[in-house]
Nucleic acid binder design. Structure first.
Lengths: 255, 255
DNA sequence: TGCTGTCCCTTTGTCCGACAAAGTTAAAGC
DNA sequence: GCTTTAACTTTGTCGGACAAAGGGACAGCA
């Protein structure tokens, strides 16, 4: 017979976790604002009454979560978590879960179409300027697969940004990060890949400028289908995302 | 005049970071498989030749990233990062960036429609059984807003799972986690809210079973529009997601 | 005035050694 | 065979220590 629940389980979190939680609460509640200094480790030792090693373990937890960071002089301050840092964790998780390129492709089809729809509706002049600048840089490096792939990744980040929807921006990011290395491979392996990619970007910018939703969606689909056709010349869509992707993710995270 | 970039910045990562990176590499490369033991802190001290405090800081980093965890006996082992743990970080970031409910609503409209489309196409008998079970539990707690909101959140997780697309599952999660508290508020404040919610779920399951894509999309839209109408009785869609949401996110993370 | 070098203080990253609490293993006892 | 007891191991925490690097103030020099 199970005993009746007379007592609740006691919260026995280790001290470093409690330190992290306490600081996190202050930041999330807004009592510590992004940019505010957290104080030195010694300060925290005094405030929490625990050893510096314990404080440092707590700091690592928060740092990894993107809630605090150290400036050039290594002083601690609260900060607004950067999406790209957090989403690289998710990309890594997708790799470890061995998702297939088909899943990536189908999810991205949805996410990128939604991005362009938002961009067509909401893009500002500044967004258009950024996109145009990106296009110019892409044209300049159309012969360099690595650089072009980087420009492509940035282009789609800018489209998502132009949608003015940060939830969407964040949702597409983990999948998008996994695209980058294949884009490089495809542009390397398929002769007409680079020019087609740049042409698609040009049409997309044009669609955004003319607020032409149909054209935006059409060219986004074509752009992705191009990727797919190029990819299928190299491998099967049902292959799982390979481990090599992590090198890129790691490099991106450290930036 | 700027100096020409003769030298690249030297990589001077602190030791704990190098420890974390080294272990991460082994896991991501697959040399350490999920479930494999990492060894004791003392083992790592010997292998890396650094102090235990340094090892422990590195471990915190990996633990926070979901790459390793401690079992019941606190021994370290590699593990498959759980989406929900990672996405709660993102939800927190969305809160701190003060995204609006409008962004949440519009992004979710896309993500949930994509989920149901995938589910209609791909759902297995097992997925349907889980959904049906969820529906039964929802009907049983239709009078309890907190429990019903929890069931609703789980329902949509199950729909996304039925799509068999893990990228999509992951992409919708950060936004979905922010819905939960408002659903509770709406069901509390709007008398017909609970029954309408359950009815929508019933129609969605039916659409999946009949592989009726149109009906699935239709009822997903209605379901979300219901949420929106309910929400607008309480507050404006352009209000930013409030800090109170973090309590839920924190509770979910610890589970 | 503007730049450089120096001295001092603070802060961080790392190390060492220590210990209680909790878990593990294995032997001893029934 | 099952329980109890007694080592042994591992983790979480502590205190103190020190070198390296950064910041600030101040003097010297062009």
């Amino acid at each position: 017979m199970p005993v009746s629940p007379l007592f609740r389980p006691i919260d026995v979190a280790p001290a470093y976790q409690k330190v992290a939680d306490a600081i996190e609460r202050e930041i999330v509640n807004g009592r510590i604002k992004p940019g505010d200094p957290i104080g030195t480790e010694h300060d925290l030792v005094r405030q929490f009454g625990v050893n510096r090693s314990t404080i440092r373990e707590g700091i690592r937890v928060l740092e990894e979560g993107g809630l605090i960071s150290r400036d050039s002089s290594r002083r601690l301050h609260a900060c607004l978590p950067r999406y790209s840092k957090l989403t690289s964790r998710l990309s890594r998780a997708l790799v470890l879960h061995e998702v297939t390129f088909r899943e990536l492709y189908e999810a991205s089809m949805t996410l990128e179409v939604a991005s362009i729809e938002g961009a067509v509706e909401q893009a500002s002049e500044e967004n258009l300027a950024e996109l145009t600048d990106n296009l110019a840089r892409s044209e300049a490096v159309v012969g360099d697969p690595a650089m072009l792939a980087e420009c492509d990744a940035e282009f789609h980040v800018l489209v998502a940004k132009a949608s003015q929807n940060r939830v969407l921006q964040l949702a597409r990011e983990p999948a998008a990060q996994l695209f980058y290395p294949t884009t490089e491979m495809i542009v390397t392996g398929v002769a007409e890949g680079g020019p087609r990619l740049v042409a698609a970007h040009r049409h997309l910018i044009d669609a955004i400028r003319r607020r032409d939703r149909e054209a935006g969606v059409l060219w986004t689909r074509r752009h992705l289908q191009d990727w797919r056709r190029g990819f299928e010349k190299i491998a099967s869509l049902d292959r799982s995302v390979e481990h090599m992707y992590m090198e890129h993710a790691q490099a991106a995270r450290r930036r």
